[in-house]
């Protein structure tokens, strides 16, 4: 059974992860910005991530799409902490340098539209580090997300150090819900 759908956007598509994506996932996950991610991704981590993407989607706990442009994987759009009853989810966007800003915005908007119509989600959020994630912050702002909070020392970065987290949020309007 297929739990992750293909979603087209201008110039590319969102599609499920597959085994051939391992090398690209390793490149994407060299940035250690995920909570609890203490080392750069390895082949085993990437393979486990692909397995996890299927399990997460099957149980509606999360979802991972590869962002594909010109037949090549160039990024990932992921959902974590998907709460179907509260119609909300936390998202994450990772992009290789060759995935330009406009395509990232288009991929994100297409993903949000799909999730709104397929699963009736209405509350989408990102948690970003204040430093080092400026490019992603620019993308999500262009896609319509607005900063709603800065949570102090919300994420532990080492045994003794913490980082603030910027919370960005997009609430879909009542008219979108009404269409459903």
């Amino acid at each position: 059974m297929k739990f992750v759908a293909n979603v087209d956007f201008s110039g590319g598509k969102l599609r499920p992860l597959d085994k051939s994506d391992v090398d690209t996932i390793i490149k994407l996950y060299q940035k250690q910005t995920l909570a609890g991610q203490s080392e750069a991704a390895s082949k085993e981590h990437a393979e486990r991530l692909i397995e996890l993407s299927v399990q997460m989607a099957a149980t509606q706990r999360g979802l991972m799409w590869a962002i594909e442009v010109d037949g090549q994987m160039a990024g990932m759009l992921s959902l974590y902490d998907w709460q179907p009853t509260s119609l909300k989810t936390l998202m994450r966007l990772d992009a290789l340098p060759n995935l330009d800003q406009q395509k990232q915005v288009d991929a994100l908007r297409s993903g949000v539209d799909y999730l709104a119509h397929k699963y009736h989600l209405r509350n989408f959020s990102f948690q970003c580090l204040p430093e080092g994630e400026e490019a992603i912050i620019d993308v999500i702002k262009l896609a319509g997300f607005e900063q709603s909070a800065r949570l102090r020392d919300f994420r532990r970065t080492s045994q003794t150090e913490f980082s603030d987290i910027l919370v960005f949020n997009m609430i879909l309007t009542e008219s979108v819900e009404g269409e459903q």
Partner: peptide
């Protein structure tokens, strides 16, 4: 620290929370 939007639905309304820490 800011606001968390539409955290839960109650009695037909979405509830926002102000975050204090």
């Amino acid at each position: 620290e800011g606001q968390l939007n539409s955290v839960v639905e109650f009695d037909g309304k979405w509830i926002d929370y102000q975050v204090y820490s």
